[in-house]
């Protein structure tokens, strides 16, 4: 996998999350995973088509998803991962991916993104179409978010 393709997704988190209420965005480690990704609780999946194709997955714990949704809703308490919270997480994924897609086009790599699909539940894995997945741990105001890029 071309690292050039991954950087825009990392930069998108650093650029977009402060605009939706997060004070600090820190990049953690990068892992290479196989095509089977274990869910941390909530996964948001977006399809990518164009010069490069595949999927991008925003993977997070259920409690962390609630905390992210709460920050996005200006601190409103989120006790249940309800429709509103699901919509917030889905919109976050959409904004992050759309931003990354624009950054890719500036590198001469044209892509289009699908609508996000949100999954939550325990003991679920996701099998993607590529053999290697680059997984970047981002930390937003202390909340971990895994950005898994399965594109080639």
């Amino acid at each position: 996998m071309d690292v050039r393709v991954v950087n825009p997704f990392i930069e998108a988190v650093a650029e977009v999350m402060p605009q939706i209420g997060f004070q600090s965005v820190v990049k953690g480690g990068i892992d290479i995973k196989s095509s089977n990704i274990s869910s941390l609780g909530v996964m948001t999946l977006i399809g990518v088509a164009g010069t490069v194709k595949g999927n991008v997955i925003y993977n997070m714990g259920l409690e962390d998803a609630k905390r992210i949704a709460s920050t996005m809703m200006m601190g409103m308490p989120v006790t249940e991962f309800d429709d509103m919270a699901q919509s917030a997480i889905s919109e976050m994924a959409n904004m992050l991916c759309a931003n990354a897609s624009i950054k890719l086009s500036n590198l001469g790599i044209n892509t289009d993104i699908s609508t996000p699909t949100l999954m939550f539940g325990n003991d679920v894995s996701l099998k993607v179409s590529v053999n290697k997945v680059l997984s970047v741990k981002m930390v937003l105001d202390g909340i971990p978010l895994s950005v898994d890029v399965a594109i080639e």
């Binding site: 990518v48 539940g121 996701l126 590529v130």
Partner: peptide, 21 residues
Amino acid sequence: LRVTPPSIFYGGTPEITTPNI
């Protein structure tokens, strides 16, 4: 329309949704 590569959720019986469409 064009399609993107398939991904497969498997293992448990999760809830799946796409808000706002």
